[in-house]
């Protein structure tokens, strides 16, 4: 059976590892420390943990102040509150002066589940991606999350890392490498390539495997850094495959699909289909039901692949 691992669980452990080796690391949370797992850090390093209460805007500003004084602050809460509630604080206090703040937000996407639209985060990639100086990362499994968090500390500047409430199937080894801005290219397909992030990566890998039965050679790229986007990987896939599908647990507007569409349309216009939330707010429901309802499944990804390959044919005939 596939090993499952929570990206947020890894976060708590990695924070302790980082905090042990680096006294400059401080952690802030907005009354969700047990959910985001920063409580683990608090237990070990209570003097460097600051619960800011239910005040995300104040938390982001305080984190900026810490960074200005040379600290490496991690600021954590749910993704929608980190990016939505505090967006303008992230913009002015953190991104404008390029403060060395690491925003690690959990409960990204709709797999927050039963809490519903107020707590879902289907706009966060778009909100963070549009900010100059911001780096945006969405790991595809627990170990990649750990490696990404460590890489974020080595990089000087603002970083947004989106984690999940859900446990993800493990795709990579525990000691995997992470390079910011470098896609993990599993394969490039002759017929199409799926570019995905987060939870959708393992579904894309399963979809590509099953599409072999239909005689299709489909590649998969884990685009865990949305910004800066690995445009070389996108364009290389477009040139070889001639058709691209994107898949993300986010609105199809402004996220990974939007980023890939921008690059393709300006450089290598090939058929593209974006799999994601189709400009809707999420309902309440179990994770499984929600993913199915909003079309975040390997079946939807497979349909999208068939669709873009068909579009390729139309283009050739024209």
């Amino acid at each position: 059976m596939t090993k499952m691992l929570g990206t947020r669980d890894v976060y708590g452990d990695v924070l302790i590892e980082l905090g042990t080796g680096n006294k400059d690391i401080v952690v802030l949370d907005a009354d969700l420390a047990s959910s985001t797992r920063t409580a683990k850090f608090k237990k070990k390093f209570s003097d460097r943990f600051f619960n800011m209460g239910v005040s995300e805007q104040d938390m982001m500003g305080t984190a900026a102040g810490f960074a200005s004084a040379g600290k490496i602050p991690f600021a954590s809460t749910f993704a929608i509150f980190a990016t939505g509630r505090a967006w303008e604080q992230v913009r002015q206090s953190i991104c404008l002066p390029k403060m060395n703040v690491k925003i690690v937000a959990t409960h990204g996407g709709i797999t927050v589940g039963e809490d519903g639209a107020s707590h879902h985060s289907t706009e966060d990639i778009a909100l963070m991606r549009v900010l100059p100086n911001m780096t945006v990362i969405i790991p595809a499994d627990g170990y990649e999350a750990g490696a990404a968090i460590k890489a974020a500390v080595k990089y000087r500047g603002p970083v947004f890392i989106r984690l999940s409430r859900e446990k993800f199937p493990v795709l990579y080894p525990e000691n995997c490498e992470f390079e910011i801005g470098k896609a993990k290219v599993h394969s490039i397909g002759e017929d199409a390539t799926i570019i995905s992030c987060g939870l959708m990566v393992h579904m894309s890998l399963e979809a590509a495997e099953e599409l072999k039965k239909d005689g299709l050679n489909v590649g998969v790229i884990n685009m865990s850094t949305i910004k800066p986007l690995d445009t070389d990987a996108v364009l290389n896939a477009a040139r070889i495959s001639g058709a691209i599908v994107t898949a993300e647990e986010h609105s199809i507007i402004g996220g990974l699909g939007g980023a890939v569409a921008e690059v393709l349309s300006e450089n290598e216009p090939v058929p593209l289909k974006r799999v994601g939330i189709n400009d809707k707010f999420g309902m309440s429901g179990s994770t499984v039901d929600l993913l199915k309802h909003y079309g975040l499944t390997k079946e939807t990804v497979k349909e999208a692949v068939h669709h873009v390959i068909k579009m390729k044919g139309i283009r050739v005939r024209d």
């Binding site: 805007q57 104040d58 500003g61 305080t62 900026a64 200005s68 004084a69 602050p73 303008e88 002015q92």
Partner: peptide, 19 residues
Amino acid sequence: VCTGSLGQGLSQANGLALA
């Protein structure tokens, strides 16, 4: 620190002071 959009400076000052 960067200011201009109002209301953000005291939070930043807190961070500076705590550090």
